[in-house]
């Protein structure tokens, strides 16, 4: 099975081509450029490097979130459009799981995170089981950093924090966890679409490609405000073909 995997959920961009469990090509960049202009050229390049064309891909794997809303939409729209238009499989993988997957050979808690501003993070807790399989301990969510620290304290295990945004909170993690706090190296802090592709190879393909959307993990401000005084039940369809 040929897999094309892509991650545009944060500043870094990563794309990879895999054939079964073999990584044929990967390209990862971490420069502040618009993913809209860089994603398809990057895909074109690694497909060419792999001597494949897009219609020879059997499964499109995308980092489904959380992350930057615009970045997620570019990745998800690209992946779902490929799968839809070429009649191929589509799989979404947590952007956080993909980062956690960068760390192998440990049974420490794996805590990937993205800065969500105003002292909040998108994060989840992962761990490798006895077979080395990545498992999800605490599901992905949007939380205040303080709440994450409190929850990790209760788990009372060694922790590896992962992601380029971890630096913003490193002092607080050191203060809270002392010797139990560990930090991933630069290589592991970047998303690698090869890892995303390996995780995506194990998942079931989505049934309804049209309905596939990012895992934003947050409602919009406008909807939150509206819901304070209104009910979301029994409304007319928000979007309708006319």
């Amino acid at each position: 099975m040929n897999i094309l995997a892509m991650d545009t959920s944060n500043r870094a961009l990563s794309v990879a081509v895999l054939s079964d469990d073999r990584i044929l090509a990967e390209k990862t960049t971490d420069v502040n450029k618009n993913h809209s202009t860089t994603l398809l050229p990057a895909i074109d390049q690694i497909l060419k490097d792999s001597h494949l064309t897009s219609d020879q891909i059997d499964r499109f794997v995308v980092a489904q979130g959380p992350g930057s809303y615009t970045g997620l939409r570019i990745g998800v729209t690209t992946a779902k459009t490929f799968a839809f238009t070429l009649h191929k499989e589509l799989v979404g993988v947590s952007s956080l799981a993909s980062l956690a997957g960068n760390i192998r050979h440990t049974n420490a808690l794996l805590v990937p995170l993205f800065d969500a501003r105003r002292d909040n993070v998108f994060t989840g807790v992962y761990q490798r089981d006895d077979h080395g399989q990545l498992t999800n301990v605490v599901s992905d969510k949007h939380v205040p950093v303080a709440a994450l620290i409190a929850q990790l304290k209760m788990l009372n295990e060694d922790i590896i924090f992962i992601g380029t945004d971890v630096a913003h909170f490193a002092e607080r993690f050191r203060a809270a966890f002392g010797q139990q706090a560990h930090f991933a190296d630069d290589e592991a802090n970047l998303p690698h679409a090869s890892e995303l592709g390996l995780l995506g190879a194990q998942k079931e393909a989505v049934k309804d490609i049209h309905a596939f959307i990012p895992h934003y993990l947050r409602r919009t401000q406008a909807e939150n405000d509206w819901l304070k005084t209104h009910s979301d039940k029994g409304h007319q369809p928000y979007v309708e073909e006319v």
Partner: peptide, 28 residues
């Protein structure tokens, strides 16, 4: 043509983030 009017009516005008989310649901 898939229109989002019923959604944005709630807010009295188009909310860009809401609009973007709806487009992803409908484009394919």
């Amino acid at each position: 043509i898939a229109t989002q009017i019923n959604s944005h009516k709630r807010f009295g005008g188009v909310v860009p983030e809401v609009a973007s989310r709806h487009h992803v649901e409908y484009v394919t």
